[in-house]
Simulated assay, not measured.
Amino acid sequence: MIGVWGDVVFTVSDKKINTFDAFKRTETARWSKHDIHGQKSKAEYIGLEAGKVSFTMHFSAFHGVNPIVELDKFIKYARSGVAHTLIIGTKRVGVCKWYMPGTDQSWNHIDNRGNILTAGLNITMEEYV
């Protein structure tokens, strides 16, 4: 097991490949600048913005997953507003849970019966504080 978010298990085995790539995490601080006449502006640390993570997943019927089932699972998560702990390896990512405000799907290969054979999914999650 590579990681987990809710009931999504990121894994690679000889029967199934269900993992991610291009994982990116962003943490941003909030600062305010105060104008002072005749002097440089003064910066004031306000606090942190909610963290963000993004990654891409690729689903292939040739690698033991049903792409439409996986895509529908993520649509369900985006529509339901659930938040789960994100774990990569043995480490929790951040201190809070993560929610998924939406997904961006690509149906890459479709057979002559309309079955999705390969698909891609871009996911962005935000820290639930």
Rank of each mutant, 00 (worst) to 15 (best):
residue 128 Y to G: 00
residue 58 H to T: 15
residue 125 M to Q: 08
residue 87 I to A: 09
residue 107 W to I: 09
residue 75 I to D: 14
residue 30 R to W: 00
residue 63 H to G: 01
residue 109 H to E: 11
residue 17 I to A: 09
residue 9 V to E: 09
residue 71 L to T: 06
residue 16 K to C: 06
residue 99 Y to E: 07
residue 128 Y to T: 05
residue 123 I to R: 00
residue 121 L to T: 04
residue 81 G to R: 10
residue 30 R to K: 10
residue 6 G to P: 04
residue 125 M to G: 08
residue 100 M to Y: 11
residue 87 I to Q: 12
residue 52 K to I: 05
residue 87 I to S: 08
residue 51 G to S: 12
residue 115 N to Q: 08
residue 63 H to Y: 09
residue 107 W to A: 04
residue 3 G to H: 10
residue 1 M to Y: 03
residue 50 A to K: 10
residue 73 K to M: 15
residue 81 G to I: 07
residue 73 K to V: 09
residue 8 V to S: 05
residue 18 N to D: 11
residue 97 K to Q: 14
residue 106 S to E: 14
residue 15 K to N: 13
residue 118 T to K: 04
residue 114 G to A: 06
residue 96 C to W: 02
residue 13 S to Y: 01
residue 43 A to T: 15
residue 82 V to T: 12
residue 125 M to H: 04
residue 4 V to P: 00
residue 99 Y to K: 01
residue 45 Y to T: 02
residue 55 F to P: 00
residue 52 K to A: 13
residue 31 W to D: 05
residue 26 T to Q: 14
residue 72 D to R: 15
residue 78 A to G: 10
residue 59 F to C: 06
residue 89 G to T: 10
residue 128 Y to A: 10
residue 107 W to L: 14
residue 56 T to F: 02
residue 108 N to W: 00
residue 125 M to E: 07
residue 85 T to R: 00
residue 75 I to G: 07
residue 101 P to A: 05
residue 15 K to D: 15
residue 97 K to T: 11
residue 82 V to S: 12
residue 3 G to T: 12
residue 40 K to I: 04
residue 63 H to W: 09
residue 107 W to C: 04
residue 128 Y to N: 08
residue 25 R to W: 06
residue 17 I to Q: 08
residue 80 S to E: 12
residue 53 V to L: 01
residue 82 V to I: 14
residue 56 T to L: 02
residue 98 W to T: 12
residue 85 T to Q: 04
residue 112 N to G: 12
residue 71 L to V: 11
residue 79 R to A: 13
residue 42 K to A: 11
residue 106 S to M: 11
residue 109 H to W: 02
residue 51 G to P: 00
residue 67 P to M: 06
residue 3 G to N: 11
residue 63 H to E: 14
residue 96 C to Y: 08
residue 128 Y to K: 02
residue 107 W to N: 06
residue 127 E to F: 05
residue 65 V to E: 03
residue 128 Y to M: 06
residue 88 I to Q: 11
residue 42 K to P: 00
residue 17 I to D: 01
residue 18 N to W: 09
residue 71 L to C: 14
residue 53 V to M: 02
residue 106 S to I: 11
residue 107 W to D: 07
residue 30 R to Y: 01
residue 65 V to Q: 09
residue 121 L to F: 02
residue 87 I to R: 13
residue 46 I to D: 14
residue 41 S to H: 09
residue 24 K to T: 14
residue 70 E to R: 14
residue 36 I to V: 15
residue 25 R to N: 02
residue 14 D to M: 07
residue 34 H to N: 06
residue 79 R to M: 14
residue 72 D to G: 15
residue 120 G to F: 02
residue 15 K to R: 13
residue 86 L to Q: 10
residue 27 E to G: 06
residue 20 F to T: 07
residue 116 I to F: 03
residue 14 D to Y: 00
residue 110 I to T: 09
residue 109 H to F: 03
residue 98 W to C: 12
residue 62 F to R: 13
residue 19 T to V: 13
residue 17 I to R: 12
residue 107 W to E: 12
residue 126 E to N: 03
residue 65 V to F: 01
residue 24 K to W: 00
residue 76 K to A: 13
residue 117 L to D: 01
residue 13 S to I: 05
residue 121 L to M: 03
residue 65 V to S: 02
residue 54 S to K: 05
residue 90 T to N: 15
residue 111 D to H: 04
residue 82 V to W: 06
residue 110 I to S: 08
residue 14 D to P: 02
residue 117 L to N: 02
residue 118 T to V: 05
residue 117 L to K: 05
residue 56 T to R: 05
residue 80 S to P: 00
residue 95 V to Q: 06
residue 129 V to K: 11
residue 54 S to G: 13
residue 1 M to D: 08
residue 65 V to I: 08
residue 112 N to C: 07
residue 51 G to C: 03
